[in-house]
Amino acid sequence: MADKIPKFSDLPLDKNGPHHNAWGLYGKDDELGTLNRLSNSIVKSAASEIKTGTRINIDWPLDAQGDLPFFGRQQFHKEVYQKPPRIVNDDVWTFNTQSSSQWDGLRHFGYQKEEKFYNGVTLDHIHGTNGVEKSNVNGIGAWADQGICGRGILLDYHEWRLKQGRPHSAFEAGHISADDLKAVAKDQGTEIKFGDILIIRSGYMAAYNALSRAEIEKMRAKTPLTFTGIEQSDEMMEFLWTSFSAAGGDHPSLEAWPTQKEYALHEVLLAGWGMPIGELFDLEKLGEHCKRVGRWSFFLVSKPVNVPGGVASPPNGVAIF
């Protein structure tokens, strides 16, 4: 199936659209983007990764950031209440879908200069402004039908760079190169297959968990916020385009933040290709297990919440070995 997608050098597909776009590859009304790569045959083949039945959660708790989420997002609130006279409880949750583990959907981040989302959708289509009818186009609910399920691979950059003795600061705008990620895969003996769901352990969670509240408050007050993540480069885009159906990691922006170039990877991945971006995944237990068993591939089951027109969703993700 890899030979059925255009080469990276063929992008942009829509020559009248923004840089590196793949608009129209799966039709003008497509809302799945690179999730189209998760064909039945690829998912069936990925099921061979299940050998022991061991299951590992990759969701951070919804309230993990408490009242100090980054990017000014609202904190998680939970209200549990009894329904007297019965001995019965209900609860109400109120939260920003991006204040903990999340998949960024196709409504989240558009091309900034062109003001366009995946397949040319505009803010008017989303908000129903300027005489355009409001719709649910590109909503996260479109991903709920089949979920994000397939072969997941963990590239444990954090473990690899520790072995290399390489410095790393999670809260500076450093970058992880495509060559770095390829070196991690080689060191782990992890084969990359077309349609894989890429998960990167950058070391953010380990660094965050070591911070005091005062240190988090100081980091949160920075303008702009700064994080080490994957680099903005043709090499990184080609690496992602060539093989993966989705890409996620353990920190707030996946890519180096703020962007080191005149564009952000969020623009190309979400608005250009329709590739889900995963952020704030809790990969500590997963990394420990992979290291212990010597295998960094698994079957990943993730079920975005079925909210028509939603912007993002908790992943509800489980890695199965």
Rank of each mutant, 00 (worst) to 15 (best):
V301K: 06
T94L: 15
G128T: 05
Q102K: 09
N306P: 08
N40K: 10
L280E: 09
S41M: 11
G317F: 03
I87G: 09
I56Q: 02
W241S: 05
V305D: 05
G203I: 01
L280D: 04
A2C: 07
G309Y: 02
F109A: 11
C149P: 02
V268S: 01
E231N: 10
G139E: 03
F109R: 06
G174Q: 11
P61Q: 03
F117R: 02
F299R: 00
L283K: 00
Q146P: 08
D91R: 11
K83Y: 08
R161E: 12
G174H: 06
H168C: 14
A319R: 00
K116P: 00
L162A: 15
L32C: 07
I148D: 00
A264S: 12
F71R: 07
R292P: 03
V121L: 09
V268P: 01
A312G: 04
F194Q: 01
K186L: 12
L25W: 08
A170F: 07
H20A: 11
M1P: 06
G66P: 07
T97P: 12
T242M: 05
V318Q: 08
S135A: 12
P84Y: 10
T94S: 15
A271R: 00
R151D: 05
E191N: 12
L154Q: 02
T242L: 08
T228E: 09
G33P: 02
G27V: 09
R295N: 14
K186E: 12
K303G: 05
G66C: 08
F227A: 08
L270A: 08
G165K: 08
S39C: 06
K285A: 15
